[in-house]
Every structure is written in structure tokens, then in C-alpha cells.
Amino acid sequence: DHDVVPEDKFQETLHLKEKEGCPQAFHALLSWLLTQDSTAILDFWRVLFKDYNLERYGRLQPILDSFPKDVDLSQPRKGRKPPAVPKALVPPPRLPTKRKASEEARAAAPAALTPRGTASPGSQLKAKPPKKPESSAEQQRLPLGNGIQTMSASVQRAVAMSSGDVPGARGAVEGILIQQVFESGGSKKCIQVGGEFYTPSKFEDSGSGKNKARSSSGPKPLVRAKGAQGAAPGGGEARLGQQGSVPAPLALPSDPQLHQKNEDECAVCRDGGELICCDGCPRAFHLACLSPPLREIPSGTWRCSSCLQATVQEVQPRAEEPRPQEPPVETPLPPGLRSAGEEVRGPPGEPLAGMDTTLVYKHLPAPPSAAPLPGLDSSALHPLLCVGPEGQQNLAPGARCGVCGDGTDVLRCTHCAAAFHWRCHFPAGTSRPGTGLRCRSCSGDVTPAPVEGVLAPSPARLAPGPAKDDTASHEPALHRDDLESLLSEHTFDGILQWAIQSMARPAAPFPS
């Protein structure tokens, strides 16, 4: 592969990997390779389809078979030569091979799209000592099968071997295949498990690692696999990028399955594409389908809103127990993405979901129960707010008499603000006073009005108090039968009158 990737590009890729991570280095090298001529790309395919690569990765054979028959990708048995050289000459001794072996032994695996480039050397060096003999053996194999790289107009793939297949390693990572398949204008990513390549439709969760975000852009890794992070704060999961590491605690105790298979379609829109997988259930989501939507993949363990709600429900009964003089119970939860139609709101002032922060849900004790107040519409209280300059209440639009249902020339009671006709409430011909108009209920007259088809109010509507207090003497005590009587009149003013009279009014101040 030294004929494909020059030394300066190799060093530039290593520097970019240390600065921005393996995914960015892979993407940059792939983009550079696509700008080369067809001879360089053909050399790339020839390096990929060597015999030892085909033996190690069985899924490469179907890719090789898909090439046109007129494309010669065979390799000479006596060494490598550029395709432009007409004579089959043995190339001179390859010093770059020693360079590659020494550099890969030092860096474990470079971040390139060629056999030198995919593992994360920093994480491997940190986690190597417990498994040094086995990992050293794996390093000797890295130059042979560490990076199976493929690129063409139909298929483009980048393979990364790992030393996680050490025997006896619980939940060992089998390997990473960062794979971009450009077929019919689409893009897919796969993962390699035990020599087999699994596409998103049959993606397997190998051991402790999972394909957290099938994305090839942005600074985030394709698999949430930063070796420096180790395990999740809650004892979460091992990262795919942690090559040759000792077994780590796999999943939280509440995880239903340690080796679950995540779905390959969004649980909201039932469509495929780039998904984020939940650590607590097999569901996966688009970032845009979450509520609120996320802009980037959160670091650490992530769970959907259903799993978060289940966790909150487990903690909430203990938080609601009476604990005198104790601060509110704080339950730190990872930043969760909410699927459509589901929402768990945190306290005000918290950062938005999706940031690399930890939301704190506070379970406050329930407030003391209070008697429910009568629910009145805002339009129902409008007549009470229509007060004239002299303190006389004006008529609201649409006000109707509670007896006849007519809204023409209605009066407004100064005591309960109900609309009424003087002739309907006082049919006996009582003279109307000039000021202080009161309806039949507030004036103490319980004589029913002779209106055909309208039920008369119940005599129990009024329960006047002592006459010594004029204001308190007109406080009506309405009961269920009074409400039914008012409802039978089918008037809004009657219902409003009952609601206003049912509310307690402050006692009249004593004259000074």
C-alpha cells in the first residue's frame, strides 16, 4: 500500500487522527484517494484483494465477484509491481515495509483507509498491559489484515481490525468495519463480527460495544468508541475503539438485554438511515425525530424517553415518601432524547437536551391539597369587569335574561352582576328603583315568574340570613337542586349567576 499512500500523506493522516480522531482521518484520506487517478484506485483494489485478505475476510469475495470481468485485479505471486511496468521484474528490497512494521508496532494501528489505518492507538496503548502477550500477537497480524480498504464507483468500504477477539475476553470487541457502500446513491455502514460483515439490516451488537450512531460526518466517531472515555459513568459499556482492553462492566443492572439487537429503522417514522440506538431497549431513532430533536450524538450512555420514564417511576415512589426537613431528592440522569409524543421536562434553567451534561430531575413533595375552585371561562368573567365610571356595571355583549332568554333592554344586578328583565323577575308590577337594581334572587323575592315553557326556580334557592346585616342577608345558599333548576333554563347567565354566588365573597367592612 506504500505505492498507493505516500509517506507524507501517511504522516498527515496520523497527525489528523491524533488531533480530530479516526473518523475524520478516514474521511480525509478517502476524499484524497478519490481525487487520484484511476491507476492509484486500481492499485488500491489490488492491494485489498490479496489472497491473505480474501482468506481472512470471507465477505470480500462477493465484492470481488461483483467487479466487471474485464477488470484485472489479480496479484502476481513473485511480488508487487506497478501496473504500468511491462516487465515482470522483482521490485527492489522494500524498506517501507520495515517502516510500516515499526510504526504500526509503535502506534498499534494508524488512522488511514489502508491496512495502516483504523484502530485507535492511544486507547490501545492505555489498555494494553493486562493483555500484552495476546495483543502483541495481534499486532503482528495487523499489517496483514488490519485495514481492508475498498473503493469503487459501486462499493466503497473501509475495514478496521481490532485485537478484541482475544480468547477469554468477556464481551470482547470482535472488530470495527467502517463501511461506506455507495449503492444507488445511498450510504450504509456496517460492522465486522468474527470475520463476517453485518449491514444495518442485520447488524449484531457484538459483546459490549454497539453501533451508536451510523454517521460518517462530524467530529463524533462512527461508533461511540473513545478509548479514553473507558466505561460509562454508571458502569455503562465498553467502547469499540478500545482495542485489546480488559473486560469492562457491560450494562447497567436495569438493562433488559446485554447482547440485544437494535432495530435498523426509526421507532417514530419507521424509516432507515442514520440512527441513534438506545442503551436500554432495542429501539433506534433519527436525531430529527426525537422531541426535542438533537443536533449531535450525546457522549456516554444514552437512553430513550421510555427508558428514562421507567427509571424515574422506579425512583419516584421512594422520593415521595414523607421525609421531614430533607432537601428534594435529586436523581442524576443521562441526557435523554425524547421520541415524538413523549416529553420529560427538567427543571427550568437546565441546558437543552443533547448537550454533554447531566440533567437533574428533582422530585419535590406534593403540595397540600386544596379545595378545587369553580372553573370559569374568561368570557364568563367579562360582565364582572365591565364597570362604568360611576361604579355601575355596563352590559356585556350577548347578555340575556335568565328567565325569558331575551337580551333586549336587559338590566344588570348590582349584587350578582346577572342580566335580567324587571318585568320577568317582578311581574307583579313592583316599581323599579332608580339605583341599586337587584334581581329577584338578590332582592329576596322568590315568586316564580309566569313564563310559559320555563321551569320556575326551586323555592330553596334563597336562604336569607339575619336582617340586621343587609349585605350578609342576601347571601344565597345554592344546592344541587338549585343548579339543576338553573340548568333547565338553558341560559348561560343562569349558570354564571350560580357560579358567582357559589364563590365566597369577603364580608362587608363594618362602618367606622
Rank of each mutant, 00 (worst) to 15 (best):
P348Y: 14
H286Y: 09
G341S: 13
W302G: 13
H425N: 06
A460F: 12
V360T: 12
S379G: 10
R283N: 05
S441F: 12
A508T: 08
W498R: 01
V312Q: 05
L337C: 12
P351S: 04
P374H: 13
Q325H: 11
A463C: 10
S378Q: 02
I276G: 11
S299T: 13
Q309W: 15
G244N: 13
L462T: 09
E296V: 11
P433F: 07
S502H: 06
P427N: 11
G436D: 07
L308P: 09
P335F: 15
D271L: 03
S369Q: 05
D271E: 08
G346V: 06
E342Q: 11
L373N: 12
C401Y: 02
I500H: 03
G336D: 00
S431E: 14
A370I: 15
Q325Y: 10
C269W: 06
A371H: 15
N394S: 11
V403D: 08
G300L: 12
R345D: 05
G336E: 15
A477F: 05
P466I: 12
P298F: 05
C281T: 12
R400N: 12
P348C: 08
P351V: 08
P317E: 10
D377C: 12
Q393S: 08
R270I: 14
M355E: 07
E452F: 11
A507E: 05
A467E: 09
G354K: 03
A477W: 06
G273T: 12
V329R: 12
P476H: 04
L483I: 09
P253D: 04
G434M: 08
A477E: 14
R338P: 05
Y361S: 08
G375L: 01
M503F: 15
N394Q: 05
P347R: 09
A460K: 07
S431N: 05
G272Q: 02
P327M: 13
S431G: 13
H474N: 13
L294I: 09
S379R: 11
V403H: 08
H286W: 10
G273P: 03
Q392N: 08
E265N: 15
K362V: 14
D406P: 02
I500R: 03
E330S: 11
A463H: 13
G388H: 01
L373I: 12
S305E: 08
S458Q: 10
I276C: 07
L352V: 09
R318D: 06
A417Y: 03
S458I: 11
E343S: 11
F285Y: 11
L486Q: 06
A449Y: 14
G273M: 04
T491A: 05
P322Y: 15
G336C: 13
P433E: 03
H415V: 04
D493T: 01
G341R: 14
T447N: 07
C278H: 10
P365W: 15
A418P: 02
V387T: 05
R270W: 10
Y361P: 14
P367Q: 15
T471L: 08
G494K: 02
P334Y: 14
A399C: 13
V387K: 05
Q497E: 03
L352A: 03
L337D: 04
P433Y: 13
C307S: 15
P509N: 01
P347E: 09
V451W: 12
A288S: 10
P509R: 03
E320T: 13
T414M: 15
N394A: 14
E263R: 06
R345M: 02
R440D: 08
P466E: 04
H490I: 03
P374M: 15
E452Q: 04
P348G: 11
P324G: 08
S431V: 06
V446F: 10
Q260T: 00
D264S: 08
V344F: 12
T430S: 10
A396H: 15
C278L: 08
H415N: 12
P511H: 05
P256L: 08
G453C: 05
L250V: 12
Q313I: 10
Q316R: 09
G241W: 15
D356N: 13
E390S: 13
P351Q: 10
P332Y: 15
G273S: 08
K261P: 13
A419V: 09
G341D: 02
A428I: 07
E475G: 06
G398N: 08
G398A: 13
A417F: 13
L486P: 05
P327R: 10
Y361I: 09
T357V: 13
E314C: 12
D271M: 14
A418E: 10
P459I: 12
S441G: 07
P459Y: 04
A467T: 12
G405M: 14
G336R: 07
V315L: 11
H490K: 02
F510Q: 03
D271C: 13
Q242W: 15
M355T: 08
G407F: 10
A284Q: 00
C442M: 00
C277T: 09
F426Y: 14
L462Y: 14
P348R: 13
K468P: 08
E265Q: 12
Y361Q: 00
A399S: 05
L364K: 09
Q392F: 12
G444F: 14
C277G: 07
K468Q: 11
K362D: 03
E350A: 14
A417K: 00
